[in-house]
Simulated scan of single mutants.
Amino acid sequence: MQKKLFIGIDISKLVMDATVLFPDGRHDHHQFKNSRAGFNQLLRWVRRLSSKEAYELIFGFEDTGVYSIGIGRFLSGLKLRFVSENAYRIRRSMGIQRGKDDKADSLLIARYLKRNLEELSFGQAAPDLLLELGQLSSQRERLLKERAAHKTRIKELKVLEGCLDMRFLLRIEADMVRLLDKKLREVEEEIGKRIKAQEGLQEKKELLCSVPGVGEQIANQMLIITRGFTRFPDWRKFSCYAGLAPFKHTSGTSVRGRTKVSKIANKKIKALLTMGALTSIKSKNEYRQYYERKTAEGKHPMAVLNAIKNKIVSRMFAVIERNTPYVCLQGRD
């Protein structure tokens, strides 16, 4: 069996701390720039350390958003095995940690790779289009938050209108809202244009929008998060990721907590699915019938709403798998 070399990488904005962990427990550390030149230097350094034996290289780093995209694309382009892992999962798996620095964190990541090798999910960098759509979606979220802040400011200024002259400030705030509205439309149009330019993504978006409760924003986010429905093996895995899967809370004979969803979730898609479920039950459809029937049976309204969100997710995965639009079956739960 080929020996494995584990390379843990702690990534920050400007630099990367890398630690190579050898099978016998020895380790070596070096720091590189978080740039294309730094990636090449990292690879040459690792290959020099492993030149005496034919090691299988396994890289790993925390998913730090924009700062880790570059190294992921670099390794993927060379078809090297790597793991882009959730930072929370790495921290929770390594026991009590006292103190923190980048060098120690890179060693911690390398040890995590070695300890959890059998359970690791090796990945490939997302296609450039999906990465670009992800950044456009993030920009849209920022514009929405800024617009909401300016609208709140307008309400505050109107309270003072009776005793102070707020006309100038109100005009400035109104101009900012109009500008943000314009930029928001431009970003949304750009997202739509890029999806339409990719035939496969546009077809998937149309399939998703055929599911009741799924609008354009939910469809866009699902395509981005699931990387065109290639990232999650089934809807249950995604439901867990989105914080929709209920879990038991019991211990021994004395602890009997209620079954509830976890707070560890992608809150952006969870919020969108909540809005989709709330909107869907306002119409006369199968979701509305299901909601009324279950609440009449004594189920908590929020638990029923969560079940509807899971139904929406399962049906989105189903239409993509079947490659046919959603069709409502009478009497279906």
Rank of each mutant, 00 (worst) to 15 (best):
F82K: 06
E56S: 15
L117G: 09
L117C: 02
D101G: 02
Y67H: 06
K151V: 08
K100W: 01
A54V: 13
A104S: 15
E62R: 02
L133I: 06
L75Y: 09
G65Y: 12
L130P: 01
S121T: 14
R73K: 13
K52W: 04
G77K: 05
K145W: 07
R98G: 04
E118C: 13
E132W: 00
N86I: 00
R81E: 03
E53K: 14
M94G: 12
M94C: 13
P127D: 00
S106Y: 07
I109S: 03
G99E: 05
E56D: 12
G123A: 10
R111G: 05
V83M: 14
R147P: 00
T152C: 07
Q97G: 01
G65K: 11
F74Y: 15
N86T: 02
F74N: 01
R140F: 08
I58P: 01
D63Q: 10
A125Y: 02
S121Y: 15
G99T: 10
A125C: 01
G123I: 13
L75N: 14
P127M: 05
R98D: 01
L120S: 06
Q139W: 09
E141F: 03
V66Q: 09
A110P: 11
D63M: 04
L131P: 06
L131C: 07
I90D: 10
K79L: 11
T64S: 15
I71E: 08
D128R: 12
K103G: 02
Y112L: 01
S137N: 13
D128Q: 14
A110Q: 12
L129Y: 03
G70A: 02
Y55A: 11
L120I: 05
S106Q: 10
S121V: 14
Y88L: 13
R115K: 13
I154C: 04
